[in-house]
C-alpha cells in the first residue's frame, strides 16, 4: 500500500503528540499527587427505591438535627425526583443525589450546582443558591432517547417562606 511521504510524516507526528500528551498527564498526576477521589459512597442503584435514604418518602428538602438543610434527590430516566423542589435563598444546602439506572449529569443553569451522577455511587454537592426564582434541573450527560426531556423544577424562595 502506497502512503505519501507527507501523509507518513503526519501519522508519525500525531502518534508522537499522543505519547507526549500522555507523558505530560502522567508527570502532572504523579508530581501533584492527583488520584481518584476517596471517601466515595457506593449504593445499589437497582434497589435505590428500596433503600432508606432514597426511598420516596425520604426525598426532598429536610432539616437536619443541627439545623442544616439536606436535599435528597434521585436521577432516573427521564427526570430528577421529586420533580418540583423548593429551597431557601442564601442558605447552605447539602445536595445528595443518586442514579436509579444509568449515568446522568445534573445541571442548574445560572447557579453553580452541577455534578455527574454515576450509577452505583452517591453524588454530594454543597452549595448556596444566591437568587430567588424558578430554575430548571437539566441532564447534561446523554442518558437515552428521552435525555432532552429530562428536566425538573427547582424553586429558590425567600428565606421566610421556606
Amino acid at each position: 500500500m502506497h502512503i505519501d511521504q507527507t501523509e507518513k510524516k503526519w501519522i508519525w507526528i500525531s502518534v508522537l503528540m499522543t505519547f507526549v500528551m500522555m507523558g505530560v498527564l502522567t508527570l502532572y498526576a504523579v508530581g501533584s499527587n492527583i488520584h481518584p477521589p476517596s471517601g466515595f459512597e457506593p449504593i445499589d442503584s437497582t434497589r435505590l427505591h428500596l433503600s432508606e435514604e432514597f426511598s420516596e418518602d425520604n426525598l426532598g428538602l429536610k432539616k437536619n438535627d443541627d439545623g442544616t438543610l439536606t436535599l435528597t434527590m434521585v436521577a432516573a430516566r427521564y427526570g430528577f425526583y421529586p420533580s418540583k423542589v423548593e429551597v431557601p435563598v442564601n442558605t447552605p444546602v447539602k445536595i445528595r443525589i443518586a442514579s436509579a439506572d444509568v449515568l446522568h449529569g445534573v445541571h442548574v443553569p445560572y447557579t453553580n450546582f452541577a455534578t455527574m451522577v454515576v450509577p452505583g455511587y452517591i453524588s454530594e454537592v454543597n452549595t448556596t443558591f444566591m437568587k430567588t426564582g424558578d430554575f430548571t434541573l437539566l441532564c447534561n450527560e446523554y442518558c437515552g432517547l428521552g435525555h432532552d426531556h429530562m428536566w425538573s423544577r427547582l424553586k429558590v424562595v425567600p428565606k421566610s417562606s421556606s
Binding site: 428521552g146 428536566w151 425538573s152 423544577r153
Partner: peptide, 11 residues
Amino acid sequence: RKRMVRACNSC
C-alpha cells in the same frame, strides 16, 4: 416544559 410534563415518547 412549563408544566414539567415530559414527552410520552421519551419513555
